[in-house]
């Protein structure tokens, strides 16, 4: 299953056009289509969508590559959430998130949102405005990686 899916994604992903820049960042968005087969089993397919509808579950995949000869230090990838997408978690490497347009960063559970009455409530996934990965170690020359987060079309 995993292998089949990986192949599917590989087939769907467009040819990666890493620029001559020493670090390249490629952005792909997939939509999860859940289908139920004759046996009643649900299957999840990732498709590269041209169109989506509210409620569709999106998977954002960011591929990075250090094509230069030097390690890339202080490596930070930031993705502002499209306003029509509600954050819905991430993959194996959870990002830092911001709920105030990129001023404060942290784990979602640690963040709060001001209320009209001056109090603050715990932040919800819908509050997320940006996601960010900040790497502690330099990216070695030639290294690649993949970052994933999920969203739902509002």
């Amino acid at each position: 299953m995993r292998k089949a899916l990986f192949l599917l994604i590989a087939a769907l992903a467009p040819a990666q056009a890493f620029a001559a820049n020493q670090v390249a960042l490629d952005n792909n968005v997939f939509v999860e289509r859940v289908t139920t087969d004759a046996a009643g089993k649900q299957r999840v397919l990732l498709e590269e969508p041209k169109v989506v509808v509210p409620g569709d579950r999106l998977v954002f995949v960011l591929n990075y590559r250090n094509a230069g000869a030097q390690p890339a230090d202080k490596f930070v990838i930031t993705n502002p959430m499209p306003s029509a997408v509600r954050f819905a978690g991430a993959g194996d490497m959870p990002p830092l998130v911001s709920v105030d347009g990129g001023k404060m960063w942290g784990q979602l559970a640690d963040l709060t949102v001001p209320m009209a009455d001056g109090t603050r409530r715990p932040a919800q996934p819908a509050d997320v405005t940006h996601v960010r990965w900040a790497f502690q170690k330099p990216i070695p020359a030639g290294a690649t990686g993949k970052l994933i987060f999920r969203g739902v079309v509002k």
Partner: peptide, 12 residues
């Protein structure tokens, strides 16, 4: 829906 990510880094 438009999505763009950015990366910042220091390669010396």
């Amino acid at each position: 829906i438009s999505n763009t990510a950015s990366a910042s880094f220091d390669n010396g």
